Amino acid sequence: MKKIPLWPALLAAAELSAAGGVKPAAFLWCEAPPELARLFGSVGLKPEKAGPGNTDAPVQFMSGRFDHAANAKRYVDAVRAGKTVFVGFRDLAPVHRDMAEFLPVTPWSVKSHTLRRGGKKLVGFPGSGYEKLPPLAISNIADLHVPGAPIENSLMRYLTPGYLKPLNITDFRVLLTTDAGVPALISARVGAARVYVCGGDLFDPVLAKSPGYPALMRRLLKEAAAPLPQPKE
């Protein structure tokens, strides 16, 4: 495989301790909009810069391209360790097979801009708890295809084994769609981990200027800071 520069944007944030103390939220290779600092503080998280070796935080945001094995490994390691992981496709490219297996979407649709079906306004999916958000817009958004959806059932015969999913990917939730009805933000459990996938970039400048952005991020960060319920043995 051709070597590609490591350009993901990874945000790692620690959960609140049992005593309710504030924990650092470490930004790697990116800076979130300054206005997010207050939102992080509201759920007991403190944004800080960190070195590339910081991979132990229980909440991690990754946004970029994932055709490089090192990027895929960072995601897979976080999922296997039971973290809360946010994935955004800021740059469209084929997803590395090691990562594709453990994503709660079939990511062939994020390979190219030509696979997008349009729609740059985002709306909350009915029943998700996000349907009353103020207006949201984003500069670019890729389709997200949930395994088992009708569009996927008709295409499964074309997919490689790398797109097959283990049985421990469960609890799918569509949170946002485009105004064309295409899923744009989903969440699911992947084993002991909690994963959010955005078809674009949660730090996209157009999205960050949207009236609904503070409310969207406040809700997502509140979910991210909450302890993950673990399966009973």
Rank of each mutant, 00 (worst) to 15 (best):
V190M: 03
L45Q: 15
H68K: 04
M156R: 10
K2S: 13
T84A: 09
G191P: 03
T177P: 00
H68C: 08
G44D: 05
K209T: 13
A137C: 06
M1F: 15
P107D: 08
L115N: 03
G64M: 11
P166M: 09
R117S: 07
D56R: 08
L103H: 13
V123I: 12
A224G: 10
T114Q: 11
V182A: 07
A78G: 09
R65K: 15
A26G: 05
A193T: 00
A188K: 12
K120C: 10
G82S: 06
E35T: 11
P47S: 04
N153A: 03
E101A: 11
D91M: 12
P33R: 01
A37C: 05
V146C: 09
N168F: 13
R97S: 05
P150A: 09
R173S: 01
K3R: 11
V87E: 00
S112E: 14
H96V: 07
V22P: 02
V206N: 02
A208C: 13
S187G: 09
V206C: 00
P135N: 06
T177E: 05
L10S: 04
T178N: 01
I169H: 08
H68L: 12
A226S: 05
G119W: 14
L175A: 08
A226L: 01
T106C: 07
R38D: 14
R173P: 00
V174G: 07
K222Q: 10
E48H: 06
G64A: 15
P211R: 13
L159H: 12
S210K: 04
L202G: 01
A226K: 02
K111L: 06
W7S: 14
K46G: 02
V22I: 15
V43W: 04
E48C: 05
M217V: 12
P58F: 02
L6T: 14
L221S: 06
L6D: 14
T55S: 05
R173L: 01
